[in-house]
Simulated assay, not measured.
Amino acid sequence: MSGRLSVLLVGANGQVSTELQKRLQGKVDLHVLGSSTLDLTRPDAIREQVRALSPGLIINPAAHTAVDKAESERELAFAINAIAPGVLAEEAHRLGAPLIHYSTDYVFDGSKAEPYVEADPTAPLGVYGESKLAGEQAIQAVGGAHLILRTSWVYASHGRNFLLTMQRLLQEKPELKVVADQIGAPTWAGTIANSTVRLIDRWQAGQAGPWGVYHLTARGQTSWFGFAQAIGEQLRKAGKPCAALLPIPSSDYPTPARRPLNSRLNCGKLEAEWGVGQADWHEALLECLREA
């Protein structure tokens, strides 16, 4: 038995999980359960695995994140995004272990003019947001120690995300149309992982803030079009081909699920209560590209 913290990380190959593994490996006793070893649609299997490991902390970045597909997979989205987090919260509470869980800007409808604060009324536009909100509520209903970290526009140098899609399309096409009326903060999965590690460190050092819901995104804001411009700029600096970019409204790019026009989250509470601030989105993008 080592004296190190035993951590159960739910989800193996997702963007946030991959970045967390890089930072936690060797620092804690890390147990990673991916979809091949843990079926999140089976509550009994979740309970069995958690009880077998008896971790001192559970981190849950696993989710059904296919926003459009969720519209036709409501039952699956709710099983993974709502029911499973509630079961993890119950088991964490039974062990006296905190749960760190990640949620989303999609719990809001995007109609507010200013960045959203944690206390703002929720109003999801689609199944993905509804299921993630139900997961938040299930965790809160248990009443154990928990951090629910809402983030947005997550990307990494691995997985499936806007950064990698844009890098490919910008080099393949002469011209590319990108939505310009949705505003948010592109947030590198590494930023989320770095902040999570700092939160764990503060908790272990006896400097924890209050448990609850917090917003965690990169600082600053842009549109998807602006994000694409920043990606294109780095391609050109690297001497690679880059398409001409054209801004379009969301109405020109219809999708099965509606997206919030305002995805900006005010992260001041996390900094005030836990002393954890975030990197600027543009700086984080450059760091992500350097690491790739």
Results as ranks from 00 to 15, higher is better:
1 M>L: 12
2 S>H: 11
3 G>K: 10
5 L>D: 09
7 V>D: 04
7 V>K: 03
10 V>C: 07
11 G>T: 02
15 Q>T: 14
15 Q>M: 15
18 T>V: 08
18 T>R: 15
22 K>R: 15
24 L>W: 01
24 L>H: 03
27 K>F: 01
28 V>L: 05
29 D>N: 14
32 V>F: 08
34 G>N: 09
35 S>Q: 14
36 S>K: 12
43 P>V: 04
45 A>Y: 02
46 I>N: 09
51 R>D: 13
52 A>K: 13
52 A>W: 05
53 L>A: 07
54 S>W: 07
54 S>I: 06
62 A>R: 09
62 A>K: 09
64 H>A: 15
66 A>N: 11
68 D>F: 07
69 K>Y: 10
69 K>L: 14
74 R>D: 01
75 E>I: 14
83 I>S: 04
83 I>M: 09
93 H>S: 13
95 L>T: 11
99 L>H: 12
99 L>D: 12
101 H>W: 09
103 S>N: 05
104 T>H: 00
107 V>T: 04
113 A>I: 06
115 P>C: 03
117 V>L: 13
118 E>S: 09
120 D>T: 00
121 P>R: 09
123 A>D: 11
125 L>D: 02
126 G>M: 01
134 A>R: 06
136 E>M: 01
136 E>A: 05
136 E>T: 04
140 Q>G: 04
141 A>D: 05
141 A>I: 06
141 A>E: 10
146 H>T: 10
148 I>A: 04
150 R>K: 08
150 R>T: 06
150 R>P: 06
153 W>C: 04
154 V>R: 00
155 Y>N: 01
162 F>A: 10
163 L>S: 00
164 L>I: 03
164 L>E: 01
172 E>W: 00
174 P>G: 13
175 E>G: 01
175 E>F: 02
176 L>M: 07
177 K>N: 09
180 A>G: 08
181 D>H: 05
184 G>K: 06
185 A>D: 01
187 T>F: 00
187 T>N: 01
189 A>T: 03
190 G>Q: 02
194 N>T: 14
198 R>N: 12
198 R>K: 15
198 R>D: 09
203 W>V: 05
206 G>Q: 11
207 Q>N: 15
207 Q>Y: 14
209 G>D: 08
210 P>I: 03
210 P>L: 08
211 W>G: 05
213 V>G: 04
216 L>E: 00
217 T>M: 02
219 R>N: 12
220 G>D: 06
220 G>N: 08
222 T>R: 06
224 W>N: 15
226 G>V: 03
227 F>C: 12
232 G>H: 02
234 Q>A: 15
236 R>A: 11
240 K>H: 12
243 A>T: 14
245 L>Y: 12
250 S>W: 00
251 S>V: 09
252 D>W: 10
255 T>H: 08
259 R>Y: 04
261 L>W: 05
261 L>K: 13
263 S>F: 02
263 S>G: 11
266 N>K: 07
267 C>P: 04
271 E>G: 15
273 E>M: 09
273 E>Y: 11
274 W>L: 05
276 V>P: 05
278 Q>V: 12
278 Q>T: 14
281 W>A: 01
283 E>C: 02
287 E>S: 06
289 L>D: 02
